[in-house]
Design a binder for these strands. Sequence first.
RNA 1: GGCCCGGUGGUCAAACGGUUAAGACACCGCCCUUUCACGGCGGUAAUACGAGUUCGAUUCUCGUCCGGGUCACCA
Length: 480
Amino acid sequence: MEVRTRYAPSPTGFMHVGNLRTALYEYLVAKSQGGKFVLRIEDTDRERLVEGAEEVIYKTLEQVGLSHDEGPDVGGAYGPYVQSQRKGLYLPYAEQLVREGKAYYCFCTKERLESLKSEDGFAGYDRHCRDLPAEEVRSLLDAGTPYVIRQKIPLTGSTTFTDAVFGEITIENKEIEDQILIKADGFPTYNFANVIDDHLMHITHVVRGCEYLTSTPKYNLLYEAFGWEIPTYVHLPLIMGKNDDGTVSKLSKRHGSVSFEGLAEEGYLSEAIVNYVALLGWSPSDNREVLSLEEITEDFDIARISKSPAVFDYDKLTWFNGEYIKAMDAETFLAHAAPYYWEVFGEQEKPAPVLQSILQARISRFKDIPGLLGFFKELPDYPAEYFVNKKSKTTLENSPQMLQAAIGALEGLDDWTLTGIHQCMMGLAEQLGVKNGTLLWPVRIAASGTLVTPGGAMEILTLLGREEALRRLRAGLEKC
RNA sequence: GGCCCGGUGGUCAAACGGUUAAGACACCGCCCUUUCACGGCGGUAAUACGAGUUCGAUUCUCGUCCGGGUCACCA
């Protein structure tokens, strides 16, 4: 039988990395077995509708490469794929259950429900309407009393199911509430719509976060009530965030950027995000870590999904990002970097190729570029001590000599290119009988006014251009 | 609090009864080098605890502890 999974997000306007990870694993479970991945929008909560949120979902899925085979935008044999457009579909199923005595009308007001809560806020519904006499139900209905439809959960016994990653799980039925199937507004609840839609859409594998683990019996009781086949459950370990006090909890806003959009804004590439997130809760069969979506798909196996929660580590994500940047070809790198170059060098200035050579191996996020290049725009005010460097054997005494010599040599240089400057400087060092560092350290300091720079003295001189470079060297000479 | 799940270095993780308990990130050191970075080499660091089962437990069972999740007319 063909494997079919579904990603069923609510249109909230952004994609939390937890949701992204779920979507990714849904995709992987399906695609690793040659199955279909479907997208279904769950918008039954009409009070929380967000404008344009659906588009965000399409855009994000496309950006990360999780293309769906069926969905609101691409169609499919089991549409519509938006729950609000399926509204009329659910009530008859609930009514069928009522007729069969597996569900019932409940007329309790929210106020009454509220009054049922114990001090600790944990007590649930008391099944007040479960056994209302048929005549009373009818007259209340006829009177137009607002109602919800609740599922009758067995009062005794237990429900057991097998999860593909967590194994066998048993829950006592008395722990389960008579859950609401249809809300007072006529819309189905998430749980109910989920079951109906998953069945109607022939979903074979339900992949979701393990916060649903304990509510799974409710789902199964529904499948059983309808006599439908229960799908394979694949519950995923949670993604956690580290709190300031060292504890961890479910990843949320207070842990930093936790939406795909937020991470992208922070300068993370979608390939890096996908790669990293895939490894949160799953590991490949070998030691590889930098993997494309295709490679992950090929190696993916439900059996290798982990049970324990994983802490989201921005450092490791950053490392992945750096790996992807280093692997870029010149053209792609330039396309990403250009906007940041312009921030420093002004609009439309054509970035010199040297820039790539000094930046690509050095940055892990493109947004770091302006910070690294800041000294090009304006020479910082730096202390004379910068000229002193033990390893390069530079002092306040020899630095002026080196600068003087460099200025002299550079003034007579016609070919102001990296190779030209390189030849000039290396020749000069040899001529002076000093190690390269002794000559180049003061030059780099004077040219940049910065202790740590991307690229060496010669790259910086090249980028600065003859006039500005010489101006800075002379200024440096006066400093020491 | 009830119920459910989990527990290998700081983090992600491999090892699914027998290994000197991998690897990666982070951190530290060395090398390379005109600084930093990249790259190369090396290092610090882990099976929560206690019982069992077994010739042998990271691995199986139980208890304790710790962590997390869940208990909505939200999804």
